[in-house]
Design a protein around this nucleic acid. Sequence first.
DNA 1: ATAGGGTTAG
Length: 584
Amino acid sequence: MIDNSLQSPESSKAKTILKLLQGCNSLKKLRKIHAFVITNGLQHHPAISTKLLHFCAVSVSGSLPYAVLLFRHHILNPQTDDWNSIIRGFSQSPNPLKAIFYYNDMVLAADKNFDCRPDSYTFSFLLRASERTKAERKCREVHGSIIRRGYEADVVVCTNLVKSYCGNGLVETARKVFDEMPVKDLVSWNSMILCYSQAGFHHEALRTYDLMRNENVGVDGFTLVGLLSSCAHVGAQNIGVEMHRMACKREFLRNVFVGNALINMYAKCGNLDAARSVFDSMIKRDVLTWNSMVVGYGGHGLGKEAIEFFEKMLMAGFHPNSITFLGLLCGCNHQGLVEEGVEYFHRMTSKYNIKPGIKHYGCLVDLFGRAGKLEKALEVIKNCPSQHDPVLWRTLLSSCKIHKNVEMGEIAMRSLVQVGASNAGDCILLASIYQGVNNVDGVARMRKMIKSWGIRTTPGWSWIEVADQVHKFVVDDKSHPHTNEIYNKLREVIHVLSQLGYVEEGFWGTSTSSYHSEKLAIAFGIARTPEGTCLRIVKNLRVCGDCHSFTKFVSKAFNREIVVRDRVRFHHFKGGLCSCNDYW
DNA sequence: ATAGGGTTAG
């Protein structure tokens, strides 16, 4: 029957239809073609129905419901290709679970019909579906099927498997699959690196690159983007510079993704000049390029520059998005540009139709709070759609600490308790507010609260990059292989500083014998880098008053520029002063 | 005929 139809005059019609399908770019045209197919009795012509199905299921101008219709009624005996089309269609649809259902049907059908066994393509689509459904059990099931059907050596299938496990939060399992792959190509390596980077395992990402280098699979733009993102997160500028060199050598600089990632890396490592020069050298830019600069300046507390770039961005014809405004507002915050910040906050909605998110409200609360307009800050929280968010109250609480406002601090604390989100950090904040006004009872109450809850604060850590190695320290860290050297150096540094007037501040006025992680990192940096080298520290919490003062003294006494990136912003220490003007 | 990879904020 098939052969007959190809021999008959209808075969020329079939050819026409296939050609029409190739140029089809809308559902409307598709319906016309389909009508033509039916009037000519060609709906069961295998080449045509398969092509039609593929188009409907996969093409952007196709239609998945239409594909289902074709699959059910026109394709009498679906083959692997047909199943693949429908599974692929659903795997990228809003309902990826259906892809898995179709796969189950396919397996049943394959018991009777040899022509519709799943192949490596099927598994690629299926894995994408199981990644998107966020069902780790499904992912494991699919893994089982892959092994049973003998595809565990297929590079593409395994790369998808790695991605799928990672997407489901099973990074270790993904790594195991990756390690067991008999053949790994450039894409597999890139995927593994990107997975780590996206999961926040930045050191693993960088370590994986070290392994990759020995494998002769090369490097491309994708590799660099993943690695640069991790460099940015851990503040590894030396490695980032190495990537930059590589990008220049291989002409990856035309690649917008690479350029953006470079700007971000330099900005996050505290080197805005380098970020700027990458920006200037880029031939093509997009919103992310501009955002990276605005966010870069904003994060450094350079509100004026952030605004300047924002205005340039508009003139260049780019549309700002919610991230642009986050950078802009952040810059206004740290420079105390209250009027400007408020103005941009309103313009965000009125002119650009961007709904402010919780972060934007947080910026506004911070903007008022930092500037001492605590009533205004409170008003913002009360008028905000998500006024039960602990982050906003916590922001207000820290503003109260800056301005030593007990009453407002208690309001913020009460709200935190009310929404059931108060933690030890909040108690410490309020305690230091009490401490500031010599309210002994208050301090004691907070101490008791922390004790009775038995909650511990987030452990702090600091990173420093010395000679292409990132070293991590926690409070009173003794795990570093050169602990003795570091502690000796630190004691020596403190001795030098104390002769210049530095006094160690204890927690709540008590003397303390503990060393915060950044002190250890700085001591290590001084011990291990040549004089004059800039030290770059990244830490997960805010800088405390004592460490801030310590770092200022170090920058002067040891003639070092020190860049500290804390959870919120950058501090550039130089000659005994900090770029934040002691306001952070 | 049909496959796998991308950066900001959090």
